[in-house]
């Protein structure tokens, strides 16, 4: 066992410098398509037609992106009318019909309960990464808690299948006030490729109020971390992400 102690002590620190400095290590994020100006409207329409989930819309000669529908299939960057791509991750948006940020008391101490309502395994793996050495959200005061009774934040993944609807409501009701909800991944935000259907009602916000949305398929750990920081008022959301996620329209 002593060998493990030495092994642990000898390992170098790998934790991300985010949020103190932005993290630009390669491979931390898949990036996102951003609004792209084309030569004419026809070409913008060609770019929009490349998208299998209609997340891109041609407005005059610009192709605009709805990030909450994008499934990261990357077909829009491989076509002839290629979209511009931005390798950032701070795209979480708040105020999606729920309350605002948590306020001072929870800034540096927040307990999170995850509930999986039909997501693919990948998004849960990305949430798990937050508690692992590379992202280590514990240093920011964020912790995963086993029970909803101790949770301040409910993180919801997946398109809310019919069989999980009751479990979601019960989990939400079991949480003490004040409480907040983060919808992680496009499945939770819009149902994505699995909705509308006989098993999924689409968005989590149809069932319980949502405070912060983290788009992505799956969102990288840094984006989820950004969502938590936006919720606690420690990071600003970027206006551009707000515009592309269509939060205003939904209100």
């Amino acid at each position: 066992m002593f060998g493990w102690f030495l092994r642990g002590a000898a390992s170098r620190i790998r934790t991300t410098t985010y949020p103190h400095q932005s993290d630009s290590s390669p491979g931390t994020t898949p990036g996102r398509p951003v609004a792209t100006a084309f030569a004419d409207g026809q070409e913008a329409q060609r770019a929009a037609d490349m998208c299998p989930v209609r997340a891109i819309r041609a407005v005059d000669s610009t192709a605009e992106v709805d990030l909450s529908r994008c499934v990261h299939c990357l077909s829009c960057v491989r076509g002839t009318a290629a979209m511009k791509w931005k390798n950032d991750y701070n795209w979480a948006v708040s105020g999606c019909g729920g309350t605002t940020t948590t306020g001072r008391a929870f800034r540096k101490s927040l307990s999170i309960r995850l509930i999986d309502t039909g997501s693919c395994d990948a998004v849960i793996q990305e949430v798990k990464q937050l508690a692992k050495p590379y992202y280590n959200m514990h240093k920011l005061g964020f912790f995963i808690t086993p029970t909803p009774r101790q949770a301040d934040v409910l993180m919801v993944t997946g398109p809310v299948t019919s069989h999980m609807r009751l479990a979601l409501k019960k989990t939400y009701d079991a949480m003490p006030d004040p409480k907040w909800v983060i919808a992680v991944g496009n499945c939770a935000i819009s149902g994505c490729v699995f909705a509308p259907s006989f098993m999924s009602g689409g968005a989590v916000s149809n069932i319980i109020p949502v405070d912060v949305q983290v788009p992505g398929c799956p969102p990288p750990p840094l984006a989820i971390l950004h969502g938590l920081l936006v919720l606690t008022g420690r990071e600003q959301e970027i206006d551009e992400a707000r515009a592309t996620t269509g939060v205003e329209e939904k209100k």
Partner: peptide, 30 residues
């Protein structure tokens, strides 16, 4: 087992980053 799991966590994240650098997506979608 905290130390070995942290070791493997590091390898897992590195393979995710490698996938993203190579193909553009951490889980090799698309």
């Amino acid at each position: 087992m905290v130390v070995p799991s942290a070791d493997i966590d590091v390898m897992e994240e590195e393979s995710l980053r490698l996938s993203a650098q190579w193909s553009g997506h951490r889980y090799l979608y698309g």
